[in-house]
Simulated scan of single mutants.
Amino acid sequence: MKQIGKKIIRNEVCFVPARLYKKRYISYAYACDCHDASIEAKPIRCAETPKAPIQRSFAGASVLAEVFHQKYVLSIPCYRQVSEWARYGLSVSDKTLSNWIITTSYDWLLPIYERLRDELVQQTVLHADETPYQILNRADGKPATSQSRIWLFRTIKNAQHPVAYYHADLTRERAVATTILEGFKGYLHCDGYSGYKNIPNVKLVGCWAHVRRKFF
């Protein structure tokens, strides 16, 4: 028989599981091939190799990206990631995963974080709030029941480049807001917390949602 036509019966989605593989970097050394007997010390050069995301660590950039994705996008803590990485053939502890996150954040994300603050203070209108949370082992020695704060400063909804800036601190002191808002000139929309008062070049704007609570 010969083909006289065709038609699409159905479409099917297929899944290809992720896999791990080892990438080995080799640096070759080269020596001068000249035959000049007068040259006692012949020059030697080594080829440059790409720097690792974390020095003296076997974690590649793609592995680090996946650790961040699982923790912050999928909300999978490090201790639960351990078994998932083991299925791929990578034996790693939750302590190591945590260290990867901390080191990568300081080395690669901190410059972006600081740039976000620079962009934030260029705005003319900002929103601010601070949320309480607790830390088990505090650096100041206070009990775990003490309240720490996550400060949030963000641009307005229609900003050309929206920025949501989070800052974790042990206190709710006015000095924290003053430091973060250094260089900002404009209106600050907040809940009336006294710590925002009298900050240079900042005009406070009340929140209607908080005003409404006094009546309803």
Rank of each mutant, 00 (worst) to 15 (best):
M1V: 10
Q3N: 09
G5K: 11
I9A: 09
R19M: 04
L20P: 09
R24G: 00
S27D: 02
A29S: 11
Y30K: 05
D33C: 09
A41G: 00
K42I: 02
P50L: 05
A52F: 11
Q55W: 04
R56E: 12
R56V: 03
F58L: 13
F58D: 10
A61S: 15
S62H: 10
V67L: 03
F68L: 15
H69R: 15
K71I: 03
Y72V: 10
L74Q: 14
L74F: 06
Q81W: 02
V82Y: 03
E84Y: 12
W85S: 00
W85G: 03
Y88F: 14
G89Y: 11
S98F: 02
N99Q: 09
I101T: 15
T104G: 05
T104K: 02
S105A: 14
S105Q: 02
D107A: 10
R117M: 00
V121N: 07
V121Q: 00
Q123N: 15
E130S: 09
T131L: 09
P132W: 09
P132R: 07
Y133K: 05
K142V: 07
T145S: 13
Q147M: 08
I150W: 10
R154Q: 14
Q160C: 00
Q160M: 06
H161C: 06
P162I: 00
Y165M: 01
T171D: 12
R172V: 02
R172A: 10
E173R: 14
A175N: 11
V176Y: 03
L181P: 03
F184E: 00
G186A: 04
Y187P: 04
L188E: 02
H189G: 01
C190N: 15
C190T: 15
G192P: 01
I199Q: 14
L204G: 00
L204I: 13
V205F: 06
V205P: 00
G206R: 05
G206K: 11
V211S: 13
F216C: 04
